[in-house]
Structures are given as C-alpha cells and as structure tokens.
C-alpha cells in the first residue's frame, strides 16, 4: 500500500511525514525511517514518478561534478589556486586545469594568470568524499570575469532565477541591458549600466521564490525601475 500525505509544491518542514510506502523512493531533502519517508528540511515537495523529494528554501551550496560555478580567487599557491565558491568547501584550481600552455613553475609567478580577488566562471571537475573540490577552466564556457558585481543568493533558488528554459533571466537581461551570468553555487555576476535594478529583481526572486505568479511581479518591478 502506498500512501502519499502531501501535495506537489506543498510547504513542509523537518519531521513531516511525506509518504508511507516502500515502493516510493526518498529523493533529496528526505530520509527513510522504516516505511515512512520524512522531510529533512524546510522546503517545497516535489513529486516525480516514484520519487518524492523536498527542494529546500535555504541552505549552503554542496558542489557536484559538472556544475558551473562563479568563484573568487582567495589564495595563490606555487601550483594551484584556492577559490571561494560560496560553499562550506574551498575550490581547488590546479595549474594544469587552468592554463593550456606549458608553465615552468620554478620561473613564473602564476598570479599573472589569476590573481587574488579575481572572479572566475569555472566547472566543477570532481568532489572527493572529504570535501576537496577540483575546478577546471578547461570548458568552453569557463572564463575570467572582469569588472561587474557579484550578488549571492541561496543556491537552491538558482533554478527560479533562470526560469523555465531561461525565461526569467532573459527577461532581466533584456529589460536592464546587463550582462548576467548565474553560477550554480548561487553567485550571480552582473555587469552593465543597470546593475542596481537587476540586483533588485534577483533579490526579489530569492525572497519570493515559493510564490506563484513571480514572473509578473518581476516584470512589474523592471517596468517601474525604468521610469525612475
């Protein structure tokens, strides 16, 4: 017998029993105790075929391979860089993954490639069990980001900022004429004349991401912002 006690997109919190069945599998944000599937976090329920999961409304970014993230170089070592990727773990960018050409580390200071404080858009290569995150610049989209400003949001809200097939982010880009790159770690890079307005729109999405009719609200904010 499978019983599901919650609806799709319902708000749940730790300890809420979502379903009682051994046929349904616990997805992200849930755990199994005997027959019951229970939520671990405050979030919205997502039902998908045999899976039941909870999308958290807050929390830290946990890196996984293949993610594209925005990071800030925190330290330069002889053969690698430490990168702050807005996560409990530091990103590690090895020289071989950062620079295509041969570099003689005994003769060169590698800070000429990336220096402390510079912003990069990189791919997560590998995450070890103990939390070493290897990054790579060996990716068509990876690059150094010059200028602009960074906005940090809850990483679980990144899909809402992007919108369905990129609709939300395209709307903001079009209305504000800004260059925007969204990292999956919740760091967003904005560059352009209307940085302030774009930031306001993104923060609005973060705050009200669990509400329906968000697109109208955001476009209203962008329209009003234009008049000022």
């Amino acid at each position: 017998m499978s019983e599901i006690f919650v609806k799709d997109r319902e708000l749940v919190m730790p300890g809420d029993v979502l379903a009682k069945s051994i046929d349904i599998l616990p997805g992200n944000g849930t755990y199994r105790d005997g027959e019951e599937i229970i939520s671990k976090v405050i979030g919205l329920v997502k039902l998908k075929e045999r899976f039941i999961s909870v999308i958290p409304l807050s929390g830290k970014y946990i890196p996984k391979p293949g993610d594209r993230v925005i990071g800030v170089i925190e330290d330069v070592q002889p053969t690698f860089w430490n990168v702050n990727i807005n996560s409990p773990y530091l990103g590690l960018l090895l020289l071989g993954e950062a620079v295509r050409e041969y570099v003689d580390v005994t003769k060169t200071d590698i800070s000429k490639y990336y220096d402390i404080g510079e912003i990069i858009y990189a791919k997560v290569l590998h995450v070890s069990r103990s939390g070493v995150v290897s990054l790579s610049m060996n990716d068509p989209k990876a690059k150094k980001l010059r200028g602009g400003k960074l906005v940090r949001i809850t990483p679980y809200k990144v899909p809402r900022v992007i919108g369905r097939e990129g609709s939300m982010i395209e709307l903001i880009k079009e209305k504000t004429n800004c260059n925007i790159i969204v990292g999956q770690n919740g760091v967003i890079w904005i560059k352009g004349m209307n940085e302030g307005l774009a930031t306001r729109a993104i923060l609005l999405i973060e705050k009200e991401s669990h509400i329906t009719g968000l697109t109208q609200k955001v476009s209203k904010l962008l329209e009003e912002g234009d008049k000022k």
Partner: peptide
C-alpha cells in the same frame, strides 16, 4: 537550524 536549511531528523 531549520531556518538555515541544515538537514535534520526533526525539530
């Protein structure tokens, strides 16, 4: 803790 999004068994 729940507000911070830390996974927990229950409050």
């Amino acid at each position: 803790l729940a507000d911070a999004g830390v996974p927990m068994k229950d409050l």
